[in-house]
Simulated assay, not measured.
Amino acid sequence: MQETIKTGVVVLSRDPGDFDDLSYKQWHNELVTLAKQHDGLIDVDLQKPLEGVQDQWVQVLTYDTIDNLKALLDDADYRSAVESSEERFGTPVIQQVVANSKPSALPVTVVISQLVKPGCEEAYQEWQLDMDLAAKKFPGFLGTEMIKPLPGVQNEWVVIFRFDSARHLDDWFASDIHKDLLKQAEPFFEKVHVRRVGRGFEDWFANAAGEGESGPSQVRMAMVVLLALYPTVMLLTLFVSPLMASWGLPLSMFVSNVLSVVILTWAVMPLATRALSFWLDQETGSGTFVTILGGTLIVGLYLISISLFIWLTG
């Protein structure tokens, strides 16, 4: 049985107005920066309006306890940011606070790439709307987003589904209505690719700005993981492994791996992602200068780490 927890959730909703997507996403990131200053923030989400499914912008901030959420709601800077946003965007914001008792589970996302046959685009969009409306009725549905093809860049239609847990997502996929809708759409597609987004390395990069976006590139994530992993493993090997020499390799290796994961997840990676957020964020890190600066810094830290451990083991 899953452990039952009571989380604190604040939901902000706003009607579309005379503002663009980028400006609203920037404001969302400003709000998340304020939220991160309080303990217990475990999840954020930004959902765009989707015709026929969701009429408003929706922001969700989830804290591990009601008390930690209350600390945010009592923050004068947070209240000012919410109140001033009405003048900034020209439409009122509605705030709802929920004490949410539910099985602890992490949201999951499925990214579906669909190559639609020429001439079937209009019928496909009508079918996708039916799919969205059906999914909305299922427990745990958080939102969906459609990304249209970009000529010369992306040929597929991309649809993103979000559910609050793997179990609810699986229930939707296994449902008869989902299977029936898929069968109806078979004439539209030349190719379909489904990718289930887990909560692996991406969770380690929650401190990089730009929540609700796809996050840092895999290359940058891998470089930062290596930067954090190498000194962690070296320090454990030099100072902890000798204490477990008599335990045998299988047991000592298991304990060492447990310590590595704990140290990376709750200590090293949060520090590393905060320090390198200027490079990891898709918007601030996309420029040539910042890209080169961040890459050079990472490589320099690699060399410093190697030199330090050569000196320690010499």
Rank of each mutant, 00 (worst) to 15 (best):
D132P: 01
F254P: 00
I306W: 09
I66Y: 04
F163S: 10
F188G: 07
P49D: 01
A99Y: 10
V258F: 03
T273L: 13
G248E: 04
G198R: 00
D281T: 07
A206I: 03
P139T: 06
E126D: 10
S241V: 07
F309H: 03
M146R: 08
M131C: 09
T284P: 13
I292Y: 09
G248K: 07
D74R: 12
Q184R: 13
L73P: 00
Q47P: 00
R199K: 06
A135E: 07
T65C: 04
H28T: 07
G198L: 08
G200R: 07
E51L: 02
G215N: 07
Q282F: 05
S305P: 00
K25C: 01
V153G: 02
V261S: 13
L181S: 03
S241M: 13
T7L: 11
M131V: 14
L226K: 10
Q184I: 11
G212N: 07
T144S: 15
P216A: 14
M244C: 12
R14S: 03
I94E: 13
Q96A: 02
L182S: 12
W266P: 01
P242Q: 10
T33R: 15
D39R: 12
T144P: 03
F254L: 10
V97Q: 13
G143R: 12
L129T: 06
D21S: 03
I66W: 12
I94N: 07
A134T: 15
M244I: 11
I177W: 08
V11W: 14
F254Y: 08
E145Y: 05
L236G: 12
E190P: 02
M221S: 12
Q59I: 13
E156Y: 04
F19G: 00
P242E: 12
T33G: 11
V192N: 11
V153C: 01
T273G: 11
V97M: 10
F188H: 08
T4K: 10
T265R: 14
L115S: 08
Q128A: 13
P16E: 02
V261I: 15
N155H: 03
A222F: 12
Q95E: 14
Q128K: 02
R88E: 14
N207C: 09
A208S: 14
Q114Y: 01
L22C: 00
E83P: 03
M269F: 08
L243C: 04
L31N: 12
W27G: 00
F254M: 07
P107G: 07
T284C: 10
G119I: 01
A99V: 03
V299F: 15
A174W: 12
S305R: 00
T4P: 03
A228G: 15
S165K: 08
I306K: 02
M1N: 05
Q54C: 09
Y78A: 06
V108H: 05
G90Q: 01
A99S: 12
H28I: 04
A206M: 06
K136C: 02
V258C: 12
D170W: 02
R274A: 01
V240Y: 14
G143L: 14
D170S: 08
E213P: 00
G52E: 06
I160P: 04
L271K: 04
V60M: 15
G287I: 01
L293A: 14
V262I: 15
E51G: 03
